[in-house]
């Protein structure tokens, strides 16, 4: 990682499902390489045996008891916001498996 880091931006953009022009990609690429270089600072600290911190506090066992049914949305709420819909279903271009 202390080698000059470089993002394979085509691969990452595809993973992230972001369409970008070549110009956008090249500008972003060099900016991100700078930022990644800055991230190298992290290697200066010893984290051996440190527990990763995924949450800001240590609370556990938060859940909903009783399996009780709540309110549902009428399909019109979804169809009212969906870019395309038919017969209460959301329509998208044909998905090929």
């Amino acid at each position: 990682m202390s080698e000059t880091p470089h993002i394979d931006i085509d691969y990452v953009a595809k993973l992230a499902r972001l369409d970008m022009s070549e110009e956008e990609k090249s500008k972003l690429g060099s900016q991100l390489d700078d930022i990644l270089g800055y991230f190298d600072k992290l290697n200066s600290v010893d984290v051996e045996g440190v527990e990763p911190m995924a949450h800001a506090h240590r609370v556990a066992n938060v859940w909903r008891e009783g399996d009780l049914t709540g309110e549902t949305y009428a399909p019109e709420i979804l169809t009212g916001m969906a870019p395309d819909h038919r017969d209460n279903q959301v329509v998208v271009p044909k998905v090929v498996e």
Binding site: I7, I9, V12, A13, K14, L15, A16, R17, L18, D19, M20, E24, L28, Q31, L32, I35, V92, P93, K94, V95, V96
Partner: peptide
């Protein structure tokens, strides 16, 4: 298709800084 539905919609909908951070976070 499923791919361009995502890539084009997101490419057009998000601004530069959001894209920058999504790319960084994905990476």
């Amino acid at each position: 298709d499923a791919m361009t539905l995502f890539t084009k919609s997101r490419g057009e909908g998000f601004g530069d800084e959001v894209k920058r951070r999504i790319i960084l976070g994905t990476y």
